[in-house]
Design a protein around this nucleic acid. Structure first.
Length: 474
DNA sequence: TGAAATGTTGGGGCG
DNA sequence: ACGCCCCAACATTTC
């Protein structure tokens, strides 16, 4: 009796409920991953490649073989069922609209042929079990968080140890062909220096989480320090489970661990929102924002993407993203606010860029967070919360170390001017070997004016009569 | 998980 | 000594 384990965003052997349910069912496990072109942006494709390689190695060392297929998952899995004579198929649920479609296609295609077991394996909370007293989905984080943490999740389960993987030989596509490393641009250098994709790299990060949580409360907003968990890509690909992370954090009993655990619930909340509002990636949840007078500014978008806006903290963030596939969360908010409010470019354009360049790109987190900054999502920041990139820089990168690291043109500038080089006197600029408009651009927009424009546009949107807001006023 | 505008207060300089 | 003004510091309101 064979049991197929369809690996998805659960690329791990520890605490994997899909794998464990297959162990309970079958005597011979056939593990497979189906590469789906639509599913992964450029930088996270780099990650996926290495993570699959790592999982292949881990499974090989247990005497098995992770099969790689590509194409439509339902059709590929049906073919594999026929090839290996499986009587059951096990996978972890996902909440992205396309993933849910795949799951229902699979169910209708294999109905009656095999037992299908879908595990709640990627999140702590069950999206179908959490509602307000009124029976509707939560729209505000804090009540969601309270309700979610009250329902206690199970602890992590160990890795099965007995010999379990099939030793039969099935067709498997070469990873380099169906999930090639991105060649143009070649991110590999910068990414390899920063990250170790795969379960062992993830568990290593998890081991270091007590170090991260130690100063997390006081330094979490400091991009110049290394005080975040950096677990996001590992969590996205399921190389470590949310249960493992929650378990490690709750055993610590510190303020930092509690704050990190709360952050983990933002991930839960985003997935929950995507499940209940499948239009989250494309449409503003507050429908009045359909009327917002966005600007189609291709040049502004390009300069933002390249880190050449003339605002050092923004440019540092965008260059960190390009070079390392990751950006500190505080800086993500700053650059997002700049694109949305200062340039009035639609948040979807920013979300698309993040989806392509972040190694931790996650449809739920990305969509919910961009809508949060844009002020058009559930429980979002009010529109008029407009970040001042100069003040944010001074506050969270007080010495300018973060800017100097990622914007080397400004490296010689004293801290006093590092976040507003256009204010520096000519002598300082000369001494810093800096030509504004040459080595480093002048500010793309005047933030004071841009802010007023954004507020006026917001007012304009509110003045246009239209259908009442679908999300309610709250 | 913001910032600017506006309001309030209290200390100190000064006539 | 006293009233007046200035303004920094802090608080509140508004966007």
């Amino acid at each position: 009796m064979a049991a197929i384990v369809w690996f998805r965003r659960d690329l791990r052997l520890h605490d994997n409920l899909a794998l464990l349910s297959a162990v309970a069912k079958g005597t011979e496990i056939v593990p497979v991953y189906v590469v789906d072109e639509q599913d992964t942006g450029g930088a996270s494709r780099w990650w996926l490649h290495h993570s699959l390689r790592a999982l292949q190695n881990d499974i090989s060392s247990m005497g098995g073989q992770l099969l790689i297929r590509s194409g439509d998952p339902a059709a590929e899995l049906q073919a594999l069922v026929d090839e290996c004579g499986a009587t059951s198929l096990h996978y972890s649920k996902r909440y992205e609209p396309a993933s849910r479609r795949q799951e229902s296609q699979l169910a209708s295609l294999l109905d009656g042929q095999v037992d299908i077991a879908a595990a709640d394996n990627n999140y702590l909370t069950n999206v179908n079990a959490l509602f307000t007293k009124g029976g509707s989905p939560f729209k505000v984080f804090t009540p969601f968080w309270r309700a979610a943490s009250a329902s206690h999740h199970s602890g992590p389960r160990p890795m099965p140890t007995e010999r379990l993987f099939s030793s039969r030989d099935f067709d498997s596509a070469p990873l380099d062909t169906v999930c090639p490393l991105p060649a143009n641009p070649d991110w590999a250098g910068g990414l390899r220096a920063q990250w170790q994709p795969g379960e062992s790299g993830a568990l290593q990060r998890l081991d270091e989480i007590s170090a991260a949580s130690k100063n997390y409360v006081t330094l979490r907003d400091r991009p110049d320090k290394d005080t975040t968990s950096r677990l996001s890509p590992h969590l996205h690909f399921g190389e470590v489970s949310a249960r493992q992370v929650a378990h490690a954090l709750s055993s610590q009993q510190s303020d930092g661990a509690a704050a990190l655990l709360r952050q983990l619930y933002w991930r839960e909340f985003s997935a929950y929102l995507l499940y209940h509002y499948p239009s989250l990636p494309v449409a503003p949840l507050r429908s009045e924002f359909e009327k917002f007078p966005w600007v189609n500014d291709e040049e502004g978008l390009r300069l933002w993407q390249k880190g050449k806006t003339g605002y050092p903290i923004v440019d540092a963030g965008m260059r960190q993203l390009w070079a390392s596939g990751w950006m500190h969360n505080r800086v993500r908010m700053i650059v997002a606010s700049f694109l949305i409010k200062d340039l009035m470019i639609p948040w979807q354009k920013g979300a698309a860029w993040f989806a392509d360049t972040l190694v931790d790109a996650d449809l739920a987190n990305n969509s919910a967070s961009w809508q949060w900054v844009a002020g058009c999502g559930t429980d979002s920041a009010p529109y008029f919360r407009i970040f001042n990139p100069i003040l944010q820089g001074k506050k969270f990168d007080p010495n300018g170390d973060y800017v100097r690291r990622w914007v080397p043109e400004l490296a010689a500038l004293p801290a006093k001017w590092i976040h507003e080089p256009w204010q520096a006197d000519l002598v300082t600029l000369a001494e810093s070997d800096l030509v504004l408009g040459g080595d480093y651009p002048k500010p793309l927009v005047d933030h004071g004016i841009a802010r007023k424009n954004a507020l006026a546009a917001y007012q304009l949107m509110r003045d246009i009569p239209g259908d009442s807001d679908a999300m309610g006023a709250g």
